[in-house]
Computed example of a mutant assay.
Amino acid sequence: MNVGFIGTGSMGSLLIESFIASGALGPTEIAVSNRTHAKAQALADRYPGMRAEYSNADAACGADYVFLCVKPHEFIHVVQDIKSVIRPNQTVVSITSPVLLSHLEGELGCKIAKVIPSITNLVWSGASLCIYGSRMDDRDKKKLESLFAHISEPLRIEEQYTRIVSDLSSCGPAFIAFLLQQFVDAAVEETGIPRADAQKVAANMLLGTGLLLTEGQLSMEDIQQRVAVPGGITAKALKLLQRETDGIFNQVIRTTHDKYQEDLGKVTTLFYGEEVNGQ
């Protein structure tokens, strides 16, 4: 397999590292390019056999999959860079939510997919959110999902739900880590427990809770009910949390969606010159 990665920033490098570590891809199967060539070369130097190309077109030429791992406003420029070398049998994969399948299908005469990864893929966990363009048949979808199955659980979703599932899967680790950090900080401040001890306990608690929800097949309500004895310590604390956090995640979702719509409008303007039906 030949795979090109355009963009070696946070998520691009995460995917490359995860695929190599999991055995899904070997370094010799990968070509990378980046706006700053030195960054692509630095990544290639870590993995002998990986090719750091000077142009996006060279990274894309002949690749089975071309991953576009750049910021939304850079997409139109990257698409223009690779347009002349892309062939119908290739698959271009965007990992950026505000770039629509229709944006890319309108410019590139090949198969188009969108896959939203998560930082959890770095430890071969979490989901990869898979959204497919009209030129992808079932065989194409299964082949791409088999690649991502090495580092995640591929989940097919509809494009209209891109933002909310990204909130849960991709933004979620940051949100939960923030809340856990507040919990640990409070524990240290209120009791003097060594921070390293509190962090270790909290991290293992989070891992165990995730396993209860997945392998243990407990629901979130089940966990609360089984931990919170009526009239007990946990039940009293849960009432406080319910009161103080009421509606907070509604505000979080509205914030991410507002930013998404702003970015989507800008991307659409770059592709079409004007926004179309609010998109």
Rank of each mutant, 00 (worst) to 15 (best):
I116S: 03
G265M: 01
V201G: 05
G208S: 09
T209E: 10
G216L: 01
S219V: 14
V70F: 07
M220H: 13
R35M: 06
R254F: 00
I20T: 02
S94A: 10
G231I: 10
E74R: 07
I233Q: 00
G278V: 15
G126R: 01
V184H: 12
E274T: 03
G232V: 13
S22A: 12
S13G: 04
Q224F: 09
E262N: 03
M50C: 08
N121V: 05
R139N: 12
Y260L: 00
T234A: 10
R46D: 04
I253W: 01
T234N: 10
Y272L: 12
L43M: 06
A42P: 02
R135F: 08
L241F: 15
V252S: 04
S18C: 08
P194S: 09
R156D: 12
S219D: 12
A24M: 12
S166C: 12
E189L: 15
Q217A: 13
V123P: 04
E29P: 07
T162C: 08
V78A: 03
G172D: 06
V229Y: 11
V79I: 15
V267D: 09
V188T: 10
K236Y: 10
I16Q: 04
A21R: 04
C61G: 00
G62T: 05
A228L: 04
S125W: 01
F19Q: 08
F183S: 13
R87M: 11
S22W: 00
A196P: 05
V70P: 04
K266A: 07
I6M: 12
L122Q: 07
S169K: 08
A187K: 05
A174N: 06
D185R: 06
E153T: 14
D167A: 12
A186C: 13
C61N: 02
H150F: 14
G273V: 12
I119N: 02
L155S: 09
Q90D: 03
L100C: 10
D58W: 00
L15H: 10
L168S: 03
G231N: 02
D81E: 14
T96I: 14
S97H: 02
G247A: 04
I95K: 13
T120Q: 06
S166D: 11
E215T: 11
A186M: 13
N121A: 13
E244D: 12
L147A: 03
D137Q: 06
E189C: 13
S170M: 02
F271V: 00
F249E: 02
C61H: 01
E17M: 09
D197S: 14
K111V: 06
E158C: 06
I95C: 04
M220C: 13
R243S: 09
T209V: 15
Q279P: 00
G23T: 08
T268D: 08
H103W: 08
T191I: 15
L218E: 12
